[in-house]
Amino acid sequence: MDTAASITVIRHPKERRSKCSLTPLEGRGDIRFLKARPGWEFDITGYTVLGLGAPELSAEDAGRPLLLLDSTWRLLPQLEACLKGRAVRRTLPAVETAYPRVSKIDQDPCGGLASVEALYLARLLLGERDDSLLQAYYWRDGFMENMKRSGLI
Rank of each mutant, 00 (worst) to 15 (best):
A98M: 05
G85R: 04
P38R: 15
P100R: 10
A98R: 06
V95R: 00
Q78E: 14
E56W: 07
S71V: 05
D108G: 02
P93F: 07
G27M: 11
Q107K: 14
D70P: 03
A59V: 15
E80P: 00
G53C: 05
I31K: 02
P93I: 06
P65K: 12
S103Y: 11
R32F: 08
L57W: 07
L52K: 10
T45L: 09
A87I: 04
S103E: 13
P93K: 03
G111N: 02
R74A: 12
P77E: 09
E96A: 14
W40P: 08
F33Q: 06
Y47Q: 08
P77K: 09
S58D: 12
A94G: 00
F33D: 08
R64M: 14
R90T: 12
P93E: 03
G46N: 08
A59C: 12
I105C: 01
L50A: 08
L34R: 14
Q107D: 12
E41W: 04
Y99E: 15
R37K: 13
L67H: 06
V102N: 11
P77I: 10
P38D: 15
R101A: 13
W73T: 04
L75G: 00
T72K: 03
A87P: 04
L113E: 10
V95I: 03
R90F: 12
D43M: 03
L92F: 01
P65Q: 10
